[in-house]
Amino acid sequence: MKLKYYLSATIAFLLGGYCLHAQQPAFDCTKSTFRSVNEALKFKDCATILSLRIVKDEVLNPEIGQLVHLETVDLQKNSYRFLPESVGALVRLKSMIISYNHLKKLPEAVGNWKQIEFLQLDNNGLSDLPLSIASWKQLKTLDLSWNNFSSLQKEITSLKSIRLLEVSHNGLLNLPEQIGKLSTLEELDLTFNKLKALPKSFTRLDKLKSLDLGDNQLEVLPESIHQMKALKSINVNNNQLRTLPASVARLKSLESLYLSNNQLQSLPESLFTMQHLRNIILVGNPISKDTIDRLKKALPHTNIVF
């Protein structure tokens, strides 16, 4: 047995790989991720990235408002119940993550985030948003999932650049009448809500590629759904649909139609012409075997699951 002594180990430690770290890294303030507000305040003229993720905070230091150069902020997994008004001073903010906190509401001052492009507010206790969100003209991604929204106010339809909107796992009873104004929207996730109907303007979302309406209480889909011509997938699993609009067949980009666990007894004749449809899932619907057999014959290249 060779006996090692701490001395030799320490020398080796110093001379070995850790000597690599004797070289100080170049400090680039704008690329550095600051891990506390106080640390960032020392560089408040240049601090751009702040991550307070899992710092086990209950109150966000209001001095964050002095960090006016911040562009990326991550506050995920803390216990914030509110944000200080001073966050309104973060006028250069582009990306903000506030997931997994206890927020009940946002301050009106967030309307000053006019450059915001990416905002995660999921897994909080929000039930509404300030009216000032209409100022978020650059916002592309908004995640409101796992909150307490029963409705979305009309100001959300002012998000002129929005591409992705997630509002799953809330208690939505309805959608804003003017939701069709979100003409840039490409992905919409409304699963696990309580929607019974969609507003008329809904089908004006003609850039929408992916529509997730699963686990709601919808009884019909709008007849004008054909206007949503960019749709590639429609998920209406676990709803109360009794019929499908015939116009669905006019969605030429549609690849997948998820219809499991509805009340469909029949399918529109037009559906039997959708040769371009790749997947149609009909599990848990009272559709006759004859209808399924006819569908299989009509769409031999479509994956039909029933």
Partner: peptide, 11 residues
């Protein structure tokens, strides 16, 4: 993109 939705649909 939608494997979860498909998996949900087939139980």
């Amino acid at each position: 993109n939608n494997v979860r939705t498909y998996a949900s649909a087939v139980g």
